[in-house]
Structures are given as structure tokens and as C-alpha cells.
């Protein structure tokens, strides 16, 4: 080849090859990204962030299922026995150890994302399982009265969504608790 630089083996043509291949690779990746990212949740989906719910009609022992971010959410008004059961469970028995206290803002109200952490079914409100909480009908995961996984294939406890109490009977799901409010509840 005709035109050499100080390094006898590298020609200007080699530089053009490398530069054009790099430009094509980077350009390809840049062009690919919109086709990948369009699959992610769209702006209107992301906008469904918070939902307000009135707790007053719920009686002790009752579980209601509401929708938040297209996911089911359990709101369970626990009876004193259920609270005691949840608080007394020895942490050593738990697959995903967490105290009941860390999972509720007010012990009476258990608020959980009702998506089994195994493969995403909704645990049944009727079949309470071996631990008085929920049994997932799909693959047999048992949850206790704090929504913690006790038996079966699910790896994690039912998730606690971010929420804050707007008043004693109103809860806003999807919004993190105000620090001051949260302290007041626990105190």
C-alpha cells in the first residue's frame, strides 16, 4: 500500500476501516436503543403512581383488594390475635426475616402488594394457608398474618408498598410516609 505513517504497518486506510467500523457499531447501538426502550412502561403508565383509599368501611378481620399501578394491593384490618401471631413468630423460622413492626405503620392495618413473590399470582383471601395469612393457589406458597413467606417456593415476603396515612381512615398508596407522621404513628 502506498501511504504509510511512521509505523510501517499501519496505513491511513486501516484508520478509515477502524473509524468507520466504530462509527457503524456506535450508530447501530444508538439506533437500537429506541426500539428497546419503547418496551419500558410509557409515561401514562408511570403516571398511575398514587391511589387514595377510604378505610372506614373495613371491619376487623376483613381483607380488601384494591388496584394500584395495575397491581392488586391487600388492605387487611388485622384482629388482635392476628397481630399477636405476627409479632410472636420467631425470626429464626422465617425465610426472609423481618419483624412485623418493620412491615406496618399501624399494627391494625397490614398493607401489601398482593403479588406472590414466586411467579406473580394473587394469593387467595379464602385459602389462608398453614399460617393464617394467605395461600397462593398457583404453586402453594404460604404467607403468615404479616404477609411473610413461611412455606413454599416464593423467595420473599409480600412487598409493602410505600403509603402514608392521610387521616385515621384515609390512606394514600404509592406515596412514601412523611417522616414526622410516621414517627407519630409509631409513638
Amino acid at each position: 500500500m502506498a501511504h504509510t505513517t511512521d509505523n510501517a504497518n499501519v496505513t491511513r486506510r486501516d484508520f478509515i476501516y477502524v473509524a468507520s467500523a466504530s462509527a457503524a457499531a456506535v450508530g447501530g447501538i444508538v439506533a437500537l436503543w429506541p426500539f428497546i426502550d419503547q418496551m419500558n412502561p410509557a409515561a401514562d403508565t408511570l403516571a398511575l403512581k398514587e391511589v387514595e383509599f377510604d378505610l372506614s368501611p373495613i371491619v376487623p378481620g376483613q381483607i380488601v383488594t384494591i388496584e394500584w399501578q395495575k397491581k392488586p394491593v391487600f388492605i387487611r384490618r388485622r384482629t388482635p390475635e392476628e397481630i399477636k401471631e405476627a409479632e410472636d413468630a420467631p425470626l429464626a423460622d422465617l425465610k426472609d426475616p423481618q419483624t412485623d413492626d418493620a412491615r406496618v405503620q399501624k399494627p391494625e392495618w397490614l398493607i401489601l402488594v398482593a403479588t406472590c413473590t414466586h411467579l406473580g399470582c394473587v394469593p387467595s383471601n379464602q385459602l389462608k394457608g398453614d399460617f393464617g395469612g394467605w395461600l397462593c393457589p398457583c404453586h402453594g406458597s404460604h404467607y403468615d398474618t404479616s404477609g411473610r413467606i413461611r412455606k413454599g417456593p416464593a423467595p420473599k415476603n409480600l412487598a409493602v408498598p410505600p403509603y402514608q396515612f392521610l387521616s385515621d381512615t384515609k390512606v394514600l398508596i404509592g406515596a412514601a410516609p412523611k417522616p414526622a407522621a410516621a414517627t407519630a404513628e409509631h409513638g
Binding site: N40, L119, G120
Partner: peptide, 27 residues
């Protein structure tokens, strides 16, 4: 569809992002 797409949530670390990408939503 829920159960099958959740297979991908078993992938460590990025599982949840991948399932949301597959769904285009939170479910």
C-alpha cells in the same frame, strides 16, 4: 402470562426491570 413472564423475575438483580420491560407496565 403473569406466571410465565415472572420466570424472568428469577434472574438476580435485573429480574424486576426485565419483567417490567416485558410488560411495559408494573404488571
Amino acid at each position: 402470562a403473569t406466571v410465565i413472564t415472572n420466570f424472568f423475575s428469577a434472574i438476580p438483580f435485573v429480574g424486576e426491570s426485565i419483567t417490567q420491560w416485558l410488560w411495559g407496565s408494573f404488571a
